[in-house]
Simulated assay, not measured.
Amino acid sequence: MSDAMQSHLERFPEGAIEVAQGRILDFNRAAQAQFPELAVGMEAPEFLSGSLSDPEGAGTFAHNGSLYLFSRVSGAERDLLLFRPAPQSPLTQGQLDGFVRQMRGFLQDILLEFETVSGPSRGGMDAFSKSFCRVYRLLSNLDFLRSAGAPEGVPFRPVTMDLAGLCRSLTQEAAFLLGEAGVTLTFRCALPSLLIPGDPGLLQKLILTLLSNAAKAAPGGQVVLSLSSRSGRAVLTLSDSGDALEEGSLDALFSSGQPEGQIPNPQDGAGMGLAIARHIVSLHGGALLLEERRGGLFAVVSLPTGPLSPTLTVRTPRVEENGGISPVLMELSDVLPLSIFQMDEEE
């Protein structure tokens, strides 16, 4: 590598490769450490071909059983490819034990509740619907972590999206449902919009997962979700009181270490939800802090606001995998009352 080019590419902490006319022009030491087979002047390897032609300019690719996140900056004469290993979230034995324990309990509830459906009361059907949503959510979480541990990883499709718009849409629906459970949800944001590069489906799951955990832990029946912009980052704060994070802790979100913080143990749960939240944040190159305060949950998520794709999308069209169940209803099912799941009686 030339000294001038090496100095330029070594500024990037992740792997950096420059490609011109389908051939490797140069790369930094981080790229060489990941792919020792690279050589200046060689034709771009097959595992990089998808990254160089992807219309979105960001996503994932696999090589030798490992998954990588990439972003591409295209110029008139050359492409700059930045990549880093994708975060791994293997399913732990403790999470599997929790899954089996919960699944057995839920299935027993479903069996007992289904037997009452034919009776004069419709309460059995309401309970059946709630248990079904809880089981579906548990299976969805297990499938997410299974995908995270697979070589191809969780599908990650970042676009330029309005995070403020997504938060408003979710909290509007969630506020009504949580209100029936005695929990007041408030969204605070002074910004009309906040554009970030992100996967709308994954960020929706992240927000709903944190809302569900906060609603379970809210001692006063109050949850406050706040969104702001700070130092080129989108900062989501979730608490039972709307308190701001201390300055020192907030500064830690922008350090290179990106601490994950202390994860509270979900009460009698399988421990999957917060592991999923960590994985989604890592996919987006963000940071997550979680702690317990006065018995409630306090969470802060920091996400980068650039670089942005020219595509502006709040919701990415994709095949629905939830069987027609509302994602908000499914993710919050643990804390919602049976009345929410009441089904209309047939005429």
Rank of each mutant, 00 (worst) to 15 (best):
A277Y: 01
G269L: 12
G285C: 02
L227Q: 01
L191S: 04
Q262C: 08
P264F: 06
P266S: 04
P200M: 05
S231D: 12
G182T: 03
S239R: 01
L283W: 11
R230I: 08
E247N: 15
Q262W: 03
D268S: 15
H279E: 12
L166V: 09
L208R: 01
L208W: 00
L170K: 09
D240W: 14
L191N: 05
R278T: 08
T209I: 05
E246R: 15
V235L: 00
V281G: 03
E246C: 14
L274F: 08
L283S: 12
G182N: 07
S241L: 08
L202I: 02
I276P: 01
G285W: 01
L203K: 06
A174T: 02
S231L: 12
T184R: 15
F187R: 10
L166D: 11
I196D: 01
G165W: 08
T186C: 15
G179Q: 14
L274K: 10
Q267L: 11
P219I: 14
A214F: 09
I196T: 05
F254W: 02
Q258G: 15
L185I: 12
L166S: 13
A217T: 01
T209H: 04
T237V: 11
P264K: 09
D199K: 04
A270Y: 10
G232T: 12
V183L: 04
G179L: 14
G198H: 00
A217F: 00
C189D: 01
S249P: 03
A287M: 14
L178Q: 07
E260D: 15
M272S: 10
A215E: 09
P264D: 08
A252E: 08
E246N: 13
G220I: 12
Q258R: 15
L253R: 05
N213F: 09
N265G: 14
A234G: 10
L191P: 03
K216M: 07
L177F: 14
Q222P: 14
V183C: 03
P259N: 07
F254G: 03
L170F: 09
